[in-house]
Design a protein around this nucleic acid. Structure first.
Lengths: 138, 138
DNA sequence: CCGAATCCGATTTGATACTG
DNA sequence: CAGTATCAAATCGGATTCGG
């Protein structure tokens, strides 16, 4: 959103909107993949409801394996989106929560999820239409 | 005990925010995965700039293989997010563009990408801190 | 009981080559 | 140009095991 230093040409709407996620291997792309991955989205969305323990989160994000959840949370923690708080009690208690940065990202994710949810009927209809159309092509 | 018909009496504050993407196999989840997948995000983001041909898109979304791009676009077309327009010329010309539904979704994705882009410095810093911290454990 | 690390089968991915 | 077929490699998921 800064970079207003560029001369007002016509096609800078592109660059202003989507700088360079399209380059493979760049930092933004890597971060995006962590965040938008199959389990990243759901974990962040779930965490937005508040801090939660590992197994509770695992129950909430239906279908995730322990391995994948641990892996996802580690990546998110490493990127500074998730905070892992260890409480040295017996039994041990580990809480996961969002950092301010993580909250900002999770907000956008929630917006996305909302749109997707709202679109389900349209999508289902489109899918049916597509599959029907496909039959005549064979 | 396959999913007992437990009446959700307590925690419906959740459901209002994020209905049921958390259930595996549901339509919203499937759609989300198509949209938020590694290549779905980038394809939709690129398509938001306007209609574009297969190979141009392939060049724009750096790192995607032909197979994955074709697969991604087919899924998006099937879900009614992308429109595929075939022009029977020589050589053949196939244009991909967003449907209104696809545009709505792509807008949210762009918002997400923007936040991610803005956060890159913070993320990079967090990553460095995380990795440094990890060294003392070994 | 909470969570991390390891092994292995099954699925997914990606590079290359080929067809319309 | 647009897309499919094929095969090798990386990844995922589950069970098991280990540590606190």
């Amino acid at each position: 959103m800064p970079t207003t230093t560029a001369p007002p040409t016509e096609l800078d709407a592109f660059d202003t909107l989507v700088p360079d996620v399209f380059q493979r291997g760049c930092d933004s792309r890597r971060t995006l993949e962590t965040v938008a991955g199959k389990w990243g989205v759901l974990s962040l969305a779930a965490l937005r409801e508040g801090s939660i323990r590992f197994n509770a989160l695992r129950r909430r994000v239906d279908g995730v394996s322990e391995k994948m959840l641990a892996q996802t949370l580690q990546a998110l923690e490493r990127d500074g989106l998730v905070l892992r708080t260890v409480r040295e009690t017996i039994p041990p208690n580990v809480e996961y929560s969002l950092t301010p940065l993580g909250t900002r990202v999770a907000d956008r994710l929630l917006a996305l999820i909302t749109v997707v949810e709202e679109s389900v009927p349209e999508v289902v209809e489109a899918r049916a239409a597509y599959d029907t159309r496909g039959l005549s092509a064979s």
